[in-house]
């Protein structure tokens, strides 16, 4: 019997950076996704299409990010569109907020 996982993702030639891969692992682990973190396209959408996350996931993700990196997500952040657009956007925001 063959079982396949969910979590469709568009594939491009983009390579994830080591930090992006670390954030991808955190997301996959926290949200119980069945996707291989290394297979997440860093520029594909996280929500809706792409990885297919929804608002329940967004909330879970915010907790994991706050616990792991001490970075707080906010609804009124003007950069949100960029932050939630892709793994690259999210990892970039976390890296910048940690540094700042």
């Amino acid at each position: 019997m063959q079982a396949k996982s969910t979590g469709g993702h568009l594939t491009t030639d983009e390579q994830a950076t080591p930090f992006e891969l670390e954030v991808a692992r955190l997301i996959v682990e926290q949200l119980h996704l069945e996707t291989d973190p290394a297979a997440i396209d860093p520029v594909a959408p996280l929500f809706g299409e792409g990885l297919g996350l929804d608002s329940i996931d967004a909330l879970e993700m915010s907790l994991a990010i706050s616990k792991t990196y001490g970075v707080t997500l906010r609804s009124d952040d003007p950069r949100n569109k960029e932050i939630f657009a892709s793994l690259r956007g999210l990892a970039g925001f976390i890296a910048a907020s940690r540094a700042g």
Partner: peptide, 12 residues
């Protein structure tokens, strides 16, 4: 009027 969502929103 504005909805809050993330824990950070609620605290603020």
């Amino acid at each position: 009027g504005e909805r809050v969502f993330f824990p950070g929103d609620i605290g603020a």
